[in-house]
């Protein structure tokens, strides 16, 4: 009954028991074999609430090995609660190396962003998915949506885009923008901004999606065609920003608005913190970058 003082958890490697990991790996393999198809799996209770990434954590736990290097991002940031906690969790239960650098990671678990740094072959991107069914808000019956996927009846998806244009004059969907995978399944890319949709197309990295509460896993094998749905006269477009990042002056990246004070002052900064830091280390400075050494300031 002597407690062993050790950093490594005394329970199973990567928290989940081997049978569970085996079951999840089967679901992942099936998902890879049928890109975009939602594979049901027996989601486990995890030591965190639903909605905090239980699906992503189970997928990561099932594929992670002792040699892996893990990066976890939450809305692009490595330093928010969810990201820090999940990273600490895997450090404890799997004793793996962790990083914030996109290029060094072998597994990147993400909540709602794809890193700006291009992913390479051999990397795995694990998405945390709240609602895997793209048709859910149009057709509430699961039996019916499954049939619609099976019979490739996707007219309804365009009804949603039609409604957007009728109401707003353009496709107003900005996140969870539906995509068609390999010309077959319509898939919800999880609530990533549509800015990231083109990065999914023919990505050299393996992309896995885990929805813990909804008990679904789906996947995009490397170099899969991922096409965002649109109309001929209203083609798919990504968001554009008027100004570059206020900290690192990056353009053509996804920016977050940050409120600075109670007077409504704000700035737009990179949502991808790793990308932003790298650029500042290289000496790039935006308009509001702190500790500038220029004499005028």
């Amino acid at each position: 009954m002597t407690a062993q003082p050790t950093d490594i958890a005394t329970y199973n490697f990567a928290y989940l028991d081997e049978q569970t990991k085996r079951m999840i790996r089967r679901a992942i393999l099936k998902g890879i074999a049928i890109p975009g198809y939602q594979v049901p799996f027996a989601s486990r209770e995890m030591p965190m609430p639903y909605g905090w990434g239980t699906g992503g954590v189970q997928v990561t736990a099932s594929i992670i090995g002792p040699d892996d290097v893990l990066k976890v991002i939450d809305q692009g940031a490595d330093d928010t609660t969810n990201a820090v906690s999940i990273r600490a969790f895997f450090k404890k239960v799997a004793n793996v190396a962790v990083t914030t650098e996109t290029a060094k990671a072998t597994i990147i678990q993400t909540r709602h962003r794809i890193p700006e740094h291009p992913l390479t072959s051999g990397q795995v991107l694990v998405y945390q998915v709240p609602i895997p069914e793209p048709l859910r808000f149009l057709e509430p019956r699961e039996t019916e949506t499954r049939k619609m996927h099976a019979l490739e009846e996707y007219g309804l998806m365009h009804v949603k885009l039609y409604e957007d244009i009728a109401r707003h004059g353009r496709i107003a969907t900005t996140y969870a923008y539906p995509v068609k995978v390999e010309g077959r399944y319509v898939m919800d890319p999880s609530p990533t901004p549509k800015f990231d949709n083109p990065k999914m197309h023919r990505s050299p990295a393996l992309q896995l999606f885990g929805a813990g509460r909804e008990k679904r896993i789906y996947a995009l094998p490397p170099f899969t065609d991922v096409v965002s749905l649109d109309f001929e006269d209203h083609p798919f477009e990504v968001q554009t920003f008027d100004q570059p990042c206020a900290l690192c002056a990056a353009e053509n990246v996804y920016l977050d608005e940050v409120i600075l004070d109670d007077h409504g002052d704000h700035m737009f900064v990179c949502s991808d913190t790793d990308h932003c830091e790298k650029r500042r280390e290289q000496g790039r400075r935006g308009d509001l970058a702190p500790e500038t050494m220029e004499p005028t300031q």
């Binding site: 009846e153 996707y154 007219g155 309804l156 009804v159 209203h234």
Partner: peptide
Amino acid sequence: ERLMAVGDRHY
């Protein structure tokens, strides 16, 4: 909806 279901993609 029916038009879109049979593949019409011009708003």
